[in-house]
Write a protein that binds this DNA or RNA. Structure first.
Ligand SMILES: [Mn+2]
Ligand SMILES: [Mn+2]
Ligand SMILES: [Mn+2]
Ligand SMILES: [Mn+2]
Lengths: 159, 159
DNA sequence: CAACATTCTTAGCCAAGGCTAAACTGTTTG
DNA sequence: CAAACAGTTTAGCCTTGGCTAAGAATGTTG
């Protein structure tokens, strides 16, 4: 039992209230998350490569390693994967470039990332926190929610 | 773009199109996400086990497998991990139970999950979408953002 | 232009999180 | 009470995404 609702100004008592969702719906939740996890690192790489190309003119493996706080070996291996997925082109020991498909993914990811980041700031989250949260959240936000976030941000800015 | 935001007094926005963040800050973003990914599946398991115990009285591996849309073998392996982490206790072929630490994690995760879910609904996202988004987002929301979400939800409910 | 520094790749290791197939245990029921 | 069935575990496989250490390519500079 232990029914001491002392400082429970929080949300859910959870015990009697909310029932479990139906199995199929519940399963769908987890499956969608697993799915997002398969693509999110790829998206982050492609988005970063696009940003480096846009802001620095070139995208070197060492820059990616530094920005991601990951070893160069890890980046090198990932670049081979991106190559196989035909998202980047690369000659050994040279800067990277995005394929058509890569550019498209970079744009989409960047746009989505920005919507989430601007939304969090509009909500009142401080910039450094918003950046951290957005980096993870972006991969788990549906188009429906994204549209609502965008509307909210615009509304907030009018005031 | 070009943030005309109230509390963005921190980083200089500069050029339209947002400059890259400083390397250390950028690296911190990715590192935080990697960190979250190490614990999120554990949290989902523990949270689900807590919910099953609360709503069904027992938590069987088969139920978890069904709800997560994952094989029983996968669940069995994960239960061994949860055991080693001393989050659950289990006798072979019997229902699971949470340790003290497990109960604490379940409560914390459930509370956070609910805050995110209720926030999304308060924003105007439809329930089925909100549930899916919340399942992924919850692991990437800072305490700061969580508090703001909670405030927003309460505010919205007053209307 | 030779030496040194930086960058990049390769090889080999590891843990996490999936899977299938097969064996084992516990429960139900004919 | 012995089968049959349902639930659980184990074994073995795979991919992803990290790491370190070592060596090869490139770039810089005395
Ligand atoms: Mn991103
Ligand atoms: Mn990201
Ligand atoms: Mn979750
Ligand atoms: Mn995630």
């Amino acid at each position: 039992m232990t029914d001491s609702n002392s400082n429970a100004s929080l949300i859910a008592p959870s015990i009697p209230g909310d029932a479990l969702p139906p199995v199929e719906q519940h399963a769908q939740q987890y499956a969608t998350v697993r799915n997002a996890h398969e693509t999110e690192l790829i998206e982050d790489y492609v988005e970063l490569i696009g940003d480096l190309l846009a802001h620095r003119g070139e995208a070197r493996a060492a820059d990616i390693a530094n920005r991601m706080a990951v070893s160069q070996a890890t980046v090198s291996k990932m670049i081979r994967r991106l190559n196989e997925l035909e998202l980047v082109t690369s000659k050994p020991y040279r800067s990277l470039f995005l394929t058509e498909a890569g550019q498209k993914m970079a744009e989409t990811s960047r746009a989505r990332h920005d919507v989430v980041l601007h939304f969090l700031r509009a909500l009142g989250v401080k910039d450094s926190t918003a950046r951290i949260d957005a980096e993870g959240m972006e991969h788990h936000v549906s188009d429906e929610t994204l549209a609502i976030m965008q509307r909210f941000t615009k509304q907030q800015q009018k005031k």
